[in-house]
């Protein structure tokens, strides 16, 4: 592992200029994936571009409109905020599943997304809450929905001179809530065999009026499963609706078999996680409705 130069750009423009001028760059945020990949030889970048010095890139801001997560904001700066957990309980649960307390002091949600692991916990949770990526490059600015960001295992849609700057998540309404569940054989220090994030909105009668269902570790990238959402929209999450949601999640899955689980097992359990997450999201939405009254 030989890195010939380490850059600490002080602005977005400086960062994108370095990325444009040098090939063989690797962007560094918390480094909790990159350093491990460099150690075991998976990545051998010639140049490292540490983006943490860019003003604002580690900021976390919650307003009435929504949550803005700077791309290099450490997980800890989200998980330690009760106001964020109250607004996006499922997303924060997913962030809190990353690594350990020590890892969470370094790792970022943005890095978790860019690393493009199919099993990343935050990605289905971000998709479920409708997160949008703010991307800046030499050719300007663009917005990319999280479900469109990753293109395959370890691959994302960023061009060579593009940087993920922040993620924006719209604030959920009164009758809305999210949840994320993953399955691991151990309670922690593990990687998802499958995961599922669900956000949903209830109308005043308690019927699901809108929903987003996303699954992780069940395909080359985390997927938004519209059929699964359709299965519960217009229902009160009765058993048949939940069964249809689970079936749709399983049908959307195209997992691999590996040491962490067979394709068959993943397909079965992703539906279980999705229906349980939907139930939790629904319970939370009902609580919010009750509190609002």
């Amino acid at each position: 592992m030989t890195v010939s130069r380490f850059y600490s750009p002080q602005s977005i423009a400086e960062a994108t200029a370095i990325l444009r001028q040098q090939s063989g760059c690797q962007v560094l945020a918390g480094g909790t994936d990159l350093l491990v990949q460099m150690r075991n030889g998976v990545k051998q970048p010639e140049y490292i571009v540490d983006i943490k010095e860019i003003p604002g890139i580690r900021d976390v801001t919650l307003t009435n409109q929504g949550l803005t997560l700077g791309a290099a904001a450490p997980a800890q700066s989200v998980t330690e905020r009760p106001d964020i957990a109250a607004a996006y309980p499922g997303l924060v649960e997913a962030i809190d599943m990353i690594g350990s307390t020590q890892i969470q002091g370094r790792c970022s949600v943005g890095g978790n997304l860019c690393n493009a692991s199919p099993a990343a916990d935050t990605v289905p949770a971000l998709i479920a809450v409708g997160a949008v990526c703010h991307v800046v490059g030499g050719e300007g600015v663009r917005q990319v929905r999280v479900e469109d960001f990753n293109t395959g295992p370890g691959e994302n849609c960023l061009k060579r001179d593009e940087l993920l700057i922040s993620l924006f998540i719209p604030r959920p309404g009164v009758g809305s809530a999210d949840a994320y569940l993953r399955f691991t054989p151990r309670t922690e220090m593990d990687i998802a065999v499958v995961g599922a994030g669900v956000s949903l909105s209830l109308d005043p009668m308690g019927t699901v009026s809108a929903a987003r269902v996303a699954i992780g570790a069940a395909a080359p990238t985390a997927l938004l499963v519209e059929e699964a959402a359709a299965a519960i929209i217009g229902t009160t999450l009765e058993e048949s609706a939940l069964a249809a949601l689970a079936a749709a999640a399983g049908a959307a899955a195209s997992p691999i078999s590996d040491k962490r689980g067979s394709a068959g097992y993943r397909t079965k359990v992703v539906g279980v996680m999705a229906r349980r997450a939907a139930q939790i999201a629904c319970d939370r939405a009902q609580q919010r409705q009750r509190r609002a009254h």
Partner: peptide, 16 residues
């Protein structure tokens, strides 16, 4: 050997 590390050689952790 596909799991030569504590991530995928799953010894129980305290919370298990």
């Amino acid at each position: 050997l596909e799991n030569p590390g504590f991530l995928d050689y799953r010894m129980p952790v305290a919370s298990d």
